[in-house]
């Protein structure tokens, strides 16, 4: 298990702890999600390979009603 901070809360990610695994676990789909890790946007094309490390700070963003 890898433990990261997601949207301000501690979250454990099953191995392999990639961004794709995290999104699938929390959002259930990759449609409509975006990710910032330690302040940098992770492009969609890197989600499968981007490995999260313990303690990293993640912002997980999605579309909501607005505008």
């Amino acid at each position: 298990m890898t433990a990261v901070i997601v949207n301000g809360l501690r979250q454990e990610v099953t191995e392999p702890a990639t961004v794709a695994v995290l999104i699938e676990a929390l959002a259930g789909t990759t449609r409509g999600s975006a990710v910032v890790v330690d302040g940098a946007v992770v492009p969609r094309g890197q989600w499968q390979t981007f490995a999260l490390r313990d303690g990293q700070v993640v912002e997980l963003i999605t579309a909501v009603q607005g505008g």
Binding site: T29, G32, I61, T62, G66
Partner: peptide
């Protein structure tokens, strides 16, 4: 239009 906000896993259904 839609807005971009933190994912709330408790919210059911997606605007998308």
């Amino acid at each position: 239009t839609v807005a971009m906000r933190r994912l709330d896993a408790a919210v059911q259904g997606s605007i998308l």
